[in-house]
Amino acid sequence: MSMSPAKVSCMAAIEIREIRKSFRKKKAVDGVSFTVDPGTITGFLGPNGAGKTTTLRCLLGLVRPDSGEGLVNGRAYTDIPDPLTEVGAVLEATNLHPGRRGRDHLRVVCDAAGIPVSRADEVLEEVGLTEAGRKRVGGYSMGMRQRLSLGAALLGEPKVLILDEPANGLDPEGIDWLRRFLRYQAHERGVAVLVSSHVLAEVEQTVDNVVIIAGGRSVQQSALAELTREGESLHEAFLRLTSTGSMPMTFGKAGADQ
């Protein structure tokens, strides 16, 4: 897990190279490339169905890309011997057994990853679930499930975090907590954070860089400040880059007449 500083400076923590993937001849991802550097938060944006989740699943070895590859610290996820100590990933907060207690979920992950089970309690405290950890997940709110899933990703104290829509189902307090949490991870601990979202208002407050994809292709990678430099908001820039023109622009009679 330890890595010389020289190596860190010349290698991106996450590198996506020309990933392509079709499901039953339907192109889900059609040539996406980007990089994420240590100590930064990158927002991975795109409309629903743009290919964000498929790209992340290819990166994490759950889906086999037709071509291209995703690398974490220079190697494929599936080649990392103890992936949890290097990468923490959350795909869906619904990947939990409702009949298992939160604490047991974390302990199962500790066992499989060879991490001492005492980490489970430390992480429960970190995500504010010390009390709730003794209850079965079936009784958790969506926000609690998100925090428990995030907790599992933190067990190995990774230097790379990959989160798919982590703000889904969080209340305003939870969103505020997530924002501070991500900033702490990236800016204090030097973690490379990749966070997908389609909630732009949330992203605008948190991320350093943006990657925007639409229709399975990359359409933008830059610093957030660069994208919004000319006074355009992230919202406007996003629509300009990704709009398909398929949504009606007017409503009611006026729309029908035109």
Partner: peptide
Amino acid sequence: HRTVNVTFLVTPE
């Protein structure tokens, strides 16, 4: 319950 995602993230083999 889709916990298989977590399982294979921890153990890709």
